[in-house]
């Protein structure tokens, strides 16, 4: 019995008395137990034509192997009801939403202050600045911005998480970007396509690039996504497409496989 009820607590670890509670920081660097990012999967894609731009994204949201929901849009109209600019974000969904809200208010404020809608080029540069402002705690998203430029041609700008951007003909982003992009290189920019019977070896003549009609582009987008769904588990459920023309933004939703 006596051995059980010896009075003093062990002196090595934290004891019963508050006096022994450590009041200083332990030695060495402290580890953060909290990682502020996650990947919500999904993929986006944008292609431009002569007088239109198409942005597309699947609607699945994941965390790990779980499907959070089958409908979480990644495409957003930016700048109010009569807007001609669409932003797509993929990566960490909460940052994507925060980024969209910031760009949206900025484009709206521009309109109120200047009495005219913001051009895509200006909006694209502003988006780059917003991303770079958070260079050391980035928005963990890959953004694609689409619209029509001042000549009415389809315009597409793609970004990295810290704001590097360029105007392109087509771009895939997100989980299945590495699956979709090579397909686009071949089918939109005619990479590795040559004119039949134009020569041997290096004398082969590359197939001339051309702007694709809207119907072809829509089919390419569909094919790109239905293929990505087959090979990537984070892509699926639904395909949302925004087609930006001078008449407005048309929205198309098509179901994808749920598996």
């Amino acid at each position: 019995m006596g051995s059980i009820f010896t009075a003093a607590p062990p002196q090595s670890g934290p004891g019963y008395s508050f006096k022994q509670t450590p009041t200083t920081v332990p030695e060495g660097t402290r580890q953060h137990g909290f990682y502020p990012y996650t990947d919500n999967g999904g993929s986006t894609l944008g292609i431009t034509g002569a007088d239109f731009a198409i942005l597309a994204g699947d609607t699945r949201s994941t965390s790990g192997y779980n499907i959070n929901t089958r409908f979480a849009p990644k495409l957003f109209k930016v700048g109010g009801a009569d807007s001609r600019i669409v932003l797509s974000v993929v990566g960490f969904a909460a940052d994507g939403l925060a980024l969209k809200e910031r760009l949206d208010t900025i484009v709206k404020m521009y309109r109120y202050q200047h009495g005219k809608p913001m051009s895509v080029a200006a909006c694209a540069q502003r988006l780059s600045h917003i991303l770079y402002q958070k260079r050391f705690f980035p928005y963990y998203v890959t953004a694609i911005l689409g619209g029509l430029d001042e000549e009415g041609k389809g315009a597409l700008y793609s970004y990295d998480p810290v704001g590097s951007y360029e105007r392109e003909q087509c771009r895939a982003a997100g989980a299945a970007a590495s699956l979709i992009m090579p397909f686009l290189d071949n089918q939109v920019n005619y990479k590795n396509q040559y004119v039949l019977g134009s020569g041997e070896g290096h004398a082969l003549q590359a197939r001339e690039r051309e702007l694709l009609p809207r119907k072809d582009v829509e089919e390419l987008v569909q094919d790109a996504f239905s293929s990505a769904v087959e090979r990537h588990i984070e892509v699926g459920d639904g395909l949302q497409m925004f087609i930006i023309t001078k008449d407005g933004i048309e929205e198309i939703y098509k179901p994808l496989k749920l598996d």
Binding site: P36, T38, S61, N68, T69, R70, F92, A93, A98
Partner: peptide
């Protein structure tokens, strides 16, 4: 709809947190 510690949000006709996301969903 759902919110978590990272600020991630989503909405769905059925939702569950924790173990429920695996077993109940």
């Amino acid at each position: 709809a759902s919110v978590d510690l990272l600020g991630t949000t989503f909405s769905s006709p059925t939702l569950a947190t924790g173990f429920g996301a695996h077993l109940a969903v």
